[in-house]
Simulated assay, not measured.
Amino acid sequence: MAVLAWLLIPLFAAVGAAIWGGWASRDRTTGDIAELTGYARFREAMDKTHSGSGPA
């Protein structure tokens, strides 16, 4: 029984490493597109905003 436990420990470690590796290498570009669009709208809004007073 002890031998089985010593064989299962590396097996569980390998399965855990495979799950973590798959999760770490996932494609995360979908969030970047929305963030870049929001940043572009922010820049446009900041370019349009004027205080109304003359030059300082």
Rank of each mutant, 00 (worst) to 15 (best):
G16N: 02
A34D: 08
A2Y: 07
S53N: 14
D32Q: 11
V3S: 12
A13T: 04
D27V: 00
L36W: 09
G38V: 04
G16W: 00
D47T: 02
T29K: 01
A17K: 00
F12Q: 09
A5V: 06
L36A: 14
E35M: 14
A24G: 09
A17Y: 04
W20A: 12
P10N: 03
I9N: 08
A5K: 06
A45K: 01
S53V: 09
G22E: 03
K48S: 10
R28L: 13
L7I: 05
R43L: 14
R28F: 13
A56W: 15
A17E: 01
T29V: 03
F42A: 13
R41Y: 12
T37G: 13
E44K: 10
M46S: 12
G54W: 06
G31W: 06
E44C: 08
S53D: 11
R41C: 09
T29F: 01
L11C: 05
A18L: 09
I19M: 01
T49H: 15
E44I: 04
A2W: 06
R26T: 05
F42K: 09
L11E: 06
V3C: 10
A45I: 00
A45W: 01
G52T: 02
K48C: 06
T30H: 12
L11N: 03
V15W: 02
A14W: 02
A5Q: 08
I9D: 11
I33G: 07
P55A: 15
S25I: 11
A40Q: 10
G38F: 03
R28D: 12
G52N: 05
D27W: 05
W6Q: 14
T30K: 15
W23F: 15
P55Q: 14
R28M: 13
G16Y: 03
A40T: 08
A40N: 12
T29Q: 03
D32I: 08
P55Y: 15
R43E: 06
A40Y: 13
I19T: 00
V3E: 05
V15G: 03
P10T: 03
T29I: 04
I9R: 07
L36M: 14
W6E: 14
L7R: 03
V15M: 04
S25P: 06
F12G: 08
R43S: 09
L8P: 01
Y39N: 11
E44L: 07
I9T: 07
